[in-house]
Amino acid sequence: MAREIPFFKPDITQYERDAIEKVLNLEGDDTIQGLEEAFVQKTGATHAVSTNSGTSALHLAMCAMDLKRGDKIICSVNAFPSVPEVVRHFDAEPIFVDIDGEDFNIDLDALEAVLEKNHSKKLKGAIVNHVAGQPTDLKRLYEIAEKYAIKIVEDASDAMGATYDGKPIGATGADITCFSFSPHMKHSVANAGMLLCEDDTLHERARLLRNHAIQSDGWDKYGNLEYIYDVVDIGCKYDLSVLDAAYALAQYRRIDQMVARRQEIAAIYDRELAGVNHVTLPVKKRDHSYQLYIVRIDRNRDGFARALKEKGVHTGLHYIPLHLMSYYKQKYSLRVNDFQQALQTYQQVLSLPIYHNMSDDEVAYVCEAVKEVAAAHI
């Protein structure tokens, strides 16, 4: 019987158990505030607003930016559905842009071309995701944003603990950066998100709207609302539970260890899979935290994935281009060939298991499985 290597497996240590136990015993300091402060301290951001998911953080970012019906937001066609989804909830329009064929991030030349052609005041900004944990060229991105006076929201769901030129993602120059504790297709034990920003107004609005736009004299440490309150806008219910915060904070305090181990695993993959027929390894152009390890299979990617699964190795696909999704294809009359690079990439990419609690023996098994499948691949 084949050995089983899941695509992702959570790592729950005594540290997480102790943190949750404190909450259940009503002990300790304000865990939610502690999580926000940990992000501020680690990233250097000015403000942090916790949420109950990464998608909530993205939607709250659009709320804070006061997105309105008919507004436009640019995003990569190679993003998780949550990205255009939060735009559509305002009856605003996502404008899709093709991707770079090497790092799978948004093609900045294509982004600038869209901005050059579109002079509408309705174009408010761009949501830029960092695929697999390798940030896009942020220096150039920020230069483009300044030139065309648009706001940048970074979807850092794959980039928690990642860096750009050695500086932590979260305060490198975006208007808002959003994180998720449940990265795409990796089901976390607890859900949580985080919104980081520098602007006081964006921060105050995000914090207000996070919990029904209620204003009061305050909340106590258990979340009880003070007696007199008012509602001053249309808000959301995106605040984070204390239990989720406890787990997330315990995990976040180990994020450097997690990233370092994934980088070790990526180095093993790089070494052991170099030159394997039919397999092209990831292109590392900048700092890379390897939330995902995405390879290209030159032909019959699905057959390759099936063969790996028969050997017990589970894989992922990041991502199916958004213009192939029924809703967006029909809503905006998009054609299959509208985004050539994303289409070609989608037909070839495959994500191998990579998580920090993989043992060297498990990594070696994945490498041998890939070699065996590649040797027999047609």
Rank of each mutant, 00 (worst) to 15 (best):
V128G: 05
V128K: 06
N129G: 06
N129P: 07
H130F: 13
H130W: 04
H130M: 13
V131K: 00
Q134G: 03
Q134V: 11
P135I: 08
T136C: 05
T136Q: 02
D137I: 13
K139A: 14
R140E: 08
Y142P: 11
E143W: 01
E143C: 04
I144Q: 14
A145F: 09
E146I: 07
E146Q: 06
Y148L: 13
K151W: 05
I152W: 05
I152P: 04
D155M: 05
A156I: 01
A159P: 02
A159E: 00
M160G: 04
M160R: 12
M160S: 07
M160C: 08
A162G: 06
T163E: 04
D165G: 13
D165Y: 08
D165F: 11
K167G: 06
P168A: 01
I169M: 00
I169L: 00
A171P: 11
T172D: 10
G173S: 04
G173D: 02
A174D: 07
A174F: 04
T177F: 00
T177Q: 00
F179G: 00
S180G: 06
S180A: 05
S180M: 01
S182W: 02
P183I: 00
P183Q: 10
K186C: 06
K186F: 00
K186S: 08
H187C: 06
S188R: 07
A190Y: 05
A190N: 09
A190D: 03
N191I: 08
G193S: 06
M194K: 04
L195G: 02
C197A: 07
D199C: 03
D199T: 01
D200L: 07
D200A: 12
D200G: 08
T201K: 14
T201A: 15
H203R: 05
H203D: 09
E204V: 06
E204N: 12
R207Q: 14
R207T: 13
L208N: 07
L209I: 03
L209C: 04
R210K: 15
R210T: 12
N211K: 15
H212M: 15
H212W: 14
H212Q: 15
A213N: 12
I214T: 11
Q215C: 12
D217K: 12
G218W: 00
W219K: 11
D220M: 08
K221Q: 07
Y222W: 11
G223I: 09
L225V: 01
L225H: 07
L225K: 10
E226M: 14
E226I: 10
Y227Q: 15
V231W: 04
V232M: 12
I234P: 04
G235M: 07
G235F: 09
G235D: 05
C236F: 11
K237E: 14
K237S: 15
K237C: 14
Y238W: 08
D239V: 15
L240M: 09
S241K: 08
S241N: 11
V242I: 14
D244R: 10
A245T: 05
A245E: 02
A246W: 10
Y247L: 13
A248G: 04
A248F: 03
A250C: 11
A250R: 02
A250S: 11
Y252Q: 03
R254P: 09
I255H: 05
D256C: 02
Q257C: 12
M258H: 10
V259C: 03
V259N: 01
A260D: 05
A260T: 01
R261K: 09
R261C: 06
R261D: 02
R261M: 08
R262D: 00
Q263L: 09
E264G: 04
I268M: 09
Y269H: 03
